[in-house]
Amino acid sequence: MSSSEHNENSEHTNPAVDGSELIKFDNVTKRFGSKVVLDNLCFDVSSGKHVTLIGPSGSGKTTILRLLMTLMKPEEGTIKVGGHYLTHEEKGGKLVPAGEKHIREVRKNIGMVFQQFNLFPNMKVLRNLTEAPVHVLGLSKEEAEQRARELLELVGLTEHIDKYPSQLSGGQQQRVAIARALAMRPQVLLLDEVTSALDPELVAGVLDVLRDIAHTTDITMLCVTHEMNFARDISDDVLMFDAGRVIESGAPEKIFSDPEHERTREFLGAVL
């Protein structure tokens, strides 16, 4: 999918953003041993879009998010975020693997929420939210705490500011994790099956928060989820994955009600 009419980068003063492509995968291949997880994958995402990745497990959706978060590196191909190569840099006209400093700089634009929350259990909620803004963005403690309070209000957890993660329910922890990611003011938010580890009754609260964020901010979202109703609500585009490739993409109304591909129909038949 390459939608190109959008250009909403006015908020983010990133001079290198060329046109509308905030994220661009170019012939990306990722293998684990002999297993090919992503197979010459090409796709791009425009700034401000909400894109949902669907497909059977093992089809490579989560791998895309982990590549974007630089938790792993592709074997072949390049990824660009905001016009910059993610794990490569140009030196003397040639592409070479990027140094730590370059990766750090590009990574600043990306935030991620994990399936297992991954809050820091040794820190209270407030410090979970201020740790990175203070030590990465260089905010003062007061600024960071101010920002943290606003975000906790957004996710409805103001009263839990002084608790440890272990004192919260799974749903509350995940909302803290969302707030923690947003505290870095990323351009892109990656959501990796954020409700899969939650008890069913806690899922709605988390999804409501995410809907709220999707509708009230211009943050770009890449979302891997099995919650098809949620995907339908928030997505501008849906990408259907199978065996490491995008086999179908389009607006959610189209994909969910009138899929073209046989595999998509099978998959949706199984999960809906």
Binding site: M69, T70, L71, R104, R107, K108, I110, G111, M112, F114, Q116, N118, L119, F120, E131, A132, H135, V136, R180, A181, M184
Partner: peptide, 18 residues
């Protein structure tokens, strides 16, 4: 320490020492 803790630190771009 669960590997997710390292990943969360990476996702937040925390410096190595931190």
């Amino acid at each position: 320490v669960p590997v997710g803790q390292w990943e969360a630190a990476t996702a937040l771009n925390l410096p190595r020492g931190r």
